[in-house]
Design a protein around this nucleic acid. Structure first.
Length: 466
RNA sequence: GGCGCGGUAGCCAAGUGGUAAGGCACGGGUCUGCAAAACCUGUAUUCACCGGUUCGAUUCCGGUCCGCGCCUCCA
């Protein structure tokens, strides 16, 4: 099946082909490093991770860029409040971000450029916009993009620019702009910026928010590239403005495909601190859920569908993973031989095709997981029946490994068994051998209290973390 | 007001113009000392509601109701 994605530009599903054969270039809006990222942010990064992994699975070479916004109102304010430099302020959040990505099993991308390292690129780009007559300087020295000079403005968000009116959310001092919808390319220094500023041909100041993505994507991916992703809330104004700046400067098509991830809500409502339903990844980990479990729940809903996060849902994710883990461990327990031949049973061949076809179809993850679980069922059934040849077991393990490259979920977590629990388990075995069932059950209860459950299998008892 | 998304079993969630994947939870059964896991089996005559097109619609069209997002802080 041909790979296809829903393109926000056309609001329809389109067949995907990269500009360069076999090589996909994509840009991903990254975090503003002024705080710990929350699970909504990570929903987007996990969607992008799935996209990236699937492209690689399809055999594409992928070059991906994720920016780090380390200069904006919030980072400047935070640094000044703490009385530290901008770098000192953002560094811990940058580190935390990468730690969090690792916990979630998100594959590193090729480039993580920081805005503050690319101010010169941004100045150069603003220069080009001046040359093309698309930028102007206001009385306070700030530089704005003139949307009146860029007729295509609004093509992504499907906005009628004339409908944009000054509303309550437009700051009072916007009289400096020619048009209320014009946006800042360069912000002139003011007192609130403290020592955060760069020198430019237009005086001291700092870049506007949107310009960094245009400048850095061009630096690493070229003036035209294949895919640009982000959350739906970025469609307007951020991505619309990126298009204006980039296409305004180059005269070329900027990104060909725009993929946007829907929001995550918690208990049916937008996450907000006042509602008490705001969760950073760290908060959720504190409640004893693993990164892998969180990855599952964030990934299992189609990216264009809004995702309602609940702890009940997270428990369901845990249970689903346990079913997968049981199957994988069971297979591994039966895999014998050294350098095995592999062969796929017919039901695995079907699952393999279905899995790939679903993901090709705009990353239909639910369909792909359906194929996976159907295979688990068929595999368990075959094992129960003893109708599972050694090379088939190896073949299915190989397929699961392949899928793991895409999902990042199919490696059971190592469980460190505590010695005390093992000792109790041993006592229980002795009681069972003596047919002292009351004592055996009492010891099992003791293990339960300690957070372990016992499975008596043909190969002896096994301990499982509850 | 403008732009956009969604309403499918107790919960989560795919899907197709021809009669409803999968996961979780729950009931019955097989296995087991009992469990657990696995397997078998039962759970939506029905896909918000009302019309229309059609031999046939959950799927297409129109309308209604409900929920949600964006409209220059935001993944």
């Amino acid at each position: 099946m041909a790979l296809r994605f829903f393109n926000t530009l056309s609001r329809s599903v389109e067949d995907f082909q990269p500009l360069e054969d076999g090589h996909v270039r994509m840009y991903t809006c990254g975090p503003t490093v002024y705080n710990f990222a929350h699970i909504g942010n990570f929903r987007a990064y996990i969607f992008e991770d799935l996209l990236r992994r699937h492209l690689k699975f399809k055999g594409y070479h992928v070059t991906q860029v994720m920016n780090l916004t380390d200069v904006d109102d919030k980072t400047i304010r935070g640094a000044r409040e703490k009385g530290v430099s901008l770098r000192e302020y953002t560094k811990p959040y940058v580190d935390a971000f990468f730690d969090d990505l690792r916990v979630l099993g998100v594959e590193p991308v090729e480039y993580y450029p920081a805005a503050t390292d690319h101010v010169q690129d941004m100045i150069t780009l603003i220069h080009r916009l001046f040359e093309r007559g698309l930028a102007y300087q206001s009385d306070d020295g700030s530089i704005y993009f003139s949307i009146a000079k860029f007729p295509a403005y609004g093509k992504l968000a499907h906005l009628d620019v004339s409908g944009l009116k000054a509303g309550a959310r437009v700051a009072q001092d916007e009289y400096e702009k020619e048009n209320v919808a014009d946006f800042a390319l360069w912000k002139a220094w003011d007192e609130a910026d403290g020592d955060v500023y760069w020198d430019s041909p237009w005086g001291r100041g700092r870049p506007g928010w949107h310009i960094e993505c245009s400048a850095m994507s061009m630096r690493y991916l070229g003036e035209s590239f294949d895919i640009h992703t982000g959350g739906v809330d970025n469609i307007f104004p951020h991505h619309e403005d990126e298009i204006a700046q980039s296409e305004g400067a180059t005269g070329k098509l900027f990104a060909r495909f725009w993929l946007h991830c829907a929001h995550l809500v918690v208990d049916g409502r937008k996450m907000s601190k006042s509602l008490g339903n705001f969760h950073t990844l760290r908060d959720v980990l504190t409640r004893n859920y693993s990164g892998r479990e969180i990855r599952y729940i964030l990934m299992a809903t189609h990216y264009r569908q809004s995702l309602n996060f609940t702890f009940e849902g997270l428990d369901a994710a845990r249970a689903a993973l346990q079913r997968l883990d049981e199957f994988i461990l069971r297979l591994q327990g039966q895999a014998t031989g050294e350098e095995p031949l592999t062969r796929l049973p017919i039901w695995a061949v079907e699952a393999k095709t279905r899995f790939a076809d679903c993901l090709d179809d705009d990353l239909n993850i639910s369909g792909a997981l359906g194929a996976l679980f159907d295979m688990v069922h068929a595999g368990n059934k075959a094992m129960d029946a003893g109708a599972f040849a050694a090379e088939e077991i190896w073949g299915v393990l190989e397929l699961l490994d392949e899928w793991h490259q895409v999902l990042g979920l199919l490696r059971p977590e190592e469980e460190s068994v505590d010695p005390k629990a093992l000792a109790i388990l041993e006592l229980r075995e002795q009681a069972r051998k003596a047919k002292n069932w009351a004592e055996a059950d009492r010891l099992r209860e003791e293990l339960t209290v300690r957070g372990w459950t016992v499975q008596d299998t043909a190969q002896g008892p096994k301990l499982k973390k509850v």
